[in-house]
Design a protein around this nucleic acid. Structure first.
Lengths: 335, 335
DNA sequence: ATGAAAGCGCTAACAA
DNA sequence: TTGTTAGCGCTTTCAT
């Protein structure tokens, strides 16, 4: 079986005590340069690495961070994960990814799983279904460092990273207006998500600025973030069946965009509905009903969230001051 | 700080020894139902969970498995990861994901990182750049369970999971032929990858079957799997600049497909080149230069690889018999 | 500068 | 049935 070398082996081979070996391997104080070199050379030679599990037990931390997103098969999140990894690995942390699939139950299970002393902190973007936050609040109260990104929990006092959802939504909606449409629907995510509210505000602001009356019937929420079969399909169908059919749709997320385009292809072959929405997809320029889009700096959001988290983890003193970083989105036109 | 309860705390509170508590918590033998109930109830009440790190140290395993893919921002891999997770979590394993970004260096670093006693086994799909396999062979020789999927290492004696790449490539190429084209180029992945060879065989078989002569100039390899800026772009440009321009392209991967379509949009506005290729994208039906595609059962591949790995990990005896599972692909037409 | 020994949380002989 | 103890690999006082 897989039986790695331990410092004990090194100690024996070199006729030293384990503590000497340990000291040589880590710090540098209280040890002669000479012995240190001998140990390091030998360790190098036999390709020794300290057992991180023993280290974790000793230091009471695992040098790993947990991340919870709805799914990795979503470009926004996989880009964010890239950003998270880029920092984490450099600072010696493992990244444990888990997916809520936008389900409350799985979010609870996963966060519990991660928290049981096996991660030093958590970066989370809430599941669409989550309405009760006690599972997170409890862990936070116990001192587990938590950073929110994207879908944040406003009420919790910790670091947060989002993009400027309101501005992004405003840009997209105003772009649609600039194309001459007036009946602009909004395909939104689950109602209770922070991003849903923020994006709706941007949408409303743009309507207001251009004196377009708001019609509540034009807003469709997807309580499962579009992850439930037929959810988006139904929403789009309902929009198209309205007495006064919308001539444009502002879509709140990547996932919803895909469902939206598919549904439109099916139910609106005339292709006379303009679309703009949030998307980080790399194929967005190749899509057929073309889609102008708001892009979030996902990689950067991941980076920042991770820096914040590692700061929390490594802070000697309890952190009292928290910040919320809001990064700019960019808008891209596809005619 | 985050200070969880230990069995010692429970023992003290209940006036028992730690071993009794331990026994109550885990198995069931050698302990009276009565005491057991007391302990379990109390543990339940204070929401106790065993420290997995201490457990790992003791049992010399971490109940986590490492997975190495080129990138998670790739639908094939994120679907495979979903499959991996679905099994792993059910069996009580954590999943640690790391990305090689198709770079040899990163593959070596990551696998080393994972192997240092912090994962019990590894599921890997090789990086496009990897030509030397000693980093993997060494760990395997030391007894670390390894399962390959997708981009496998033929020469290593262990479990492997792939899709039927040859058949998939054959289907795609034959489809193109059925559309009346004869000058079919092939945009391929890095030359040394198993999938590259297998897919090329399928491509050649289809050509042969229909008496179409093979022209080596029609095959372009992307040594970095398309992850290097401009790699695909250049390849497509070269194909289009050939004296006898191809009238169709069989593309070997999702990543390459995207680059291919983008390049074609740029260099071939006439849009007179037919495309078919491997893709697991969920938006493939919405792409503009339309793309008929071979789909791999990514989720299933992930599931199977994980089952194989966990079997290896949990096997009481050294496993000598290994199997290679080849799953069927499906072909989908987009006119 | 080095070694001996205790301890991180848990399990498993071995004793009682 | 329960308790005592040693030990997983490592770090860290405290002696020497």
């Amino acid at each position: 079986m897989f039986k790695p070398v331990t410092i004990k082996d090194i100690a024996k081979a070199l006729n030293l005590s384990t503590s000497t070996v340990s000291r040589a391997l880590r710090g540098g104080y209280e040890i002669s340069e000479e012995t240190k070199k001998i140990v390091l050379d030998y360790a190098e030679k036999i390709n020794f690495t300290r057992n991180p599990i023993a280290l974790s037990l000793k230091e009471r931390r695992s040098y790993s961070i947990g991340i919870i997103v709805c799914e990795v098969a979503n470009v926004f999140f996989s880009q964010a994960i890239d950003g998270i990894e880029s920092i984490a690995y450099n600072k010696g942390y493992h990244v444990v990814i888990s997916q809520s699939h936008d389900q409350y139950e799985r979010e609870v299970t996963n966060i519990q799983h991660l928290a049981n002393r096996s991660v030093d902190g958590i970066i989370i973007s809430l599941a669409a279904e989550t309405k009760d936050y006690s599972h997170i609040e409890k862990l936070h109260a116990q001192g587990l460092p938590i950073v929110f990104f994207d879908r944040i929990l406003e009420s919790m006092n910790t670091h947060k990273v989002t993009s400027n959802n309101t501005q992004g939504a405003f840009d997209a909606t105003e772009y649609l207006i600039s194309k001459g449409v007036k009946k602009i629907a909004h395909l939104a995510n689950a109602k209770q998500l922070s991003i849903t509210e923020q994006r709706k505000i941007g949408y409303l602001k743009a309507l207001e600025k251009h004196d377009i009356p708001f019609d509540e019937n034009y807003v469709k929420y997807c309580e499962h973030g579009g992850s439930k079969k037929g959810e988006v399909d139904t929403a789009i169908k309902e929009l198209l069946d309205l007495q006064v059919k919308p001539d444009a749709i502002f879509v709140a997320s990547d996932r919803l965009s895909i469902g939206c385009l598919e549904a439109l292809k099916k139910y609106n072959p005339k292709n006379d509905v303009l679309i703009a929405g949030f998307s980080n997809s790399d194929v967005v320029n190749l899509l057929k009903p073309s889609l102008s889009y708001v892009r979030q700096p996902a990689f950067e959001m991941g980076r920042i969230a991770t820096e914040m988290l590692i700061n929390l983890i490594e802070s000697k003193y309890p952190v009292e001051e928290f910040e919320t970083k809001i990064l700019d989105t960019t808008f891209h036109i596809n005619e």
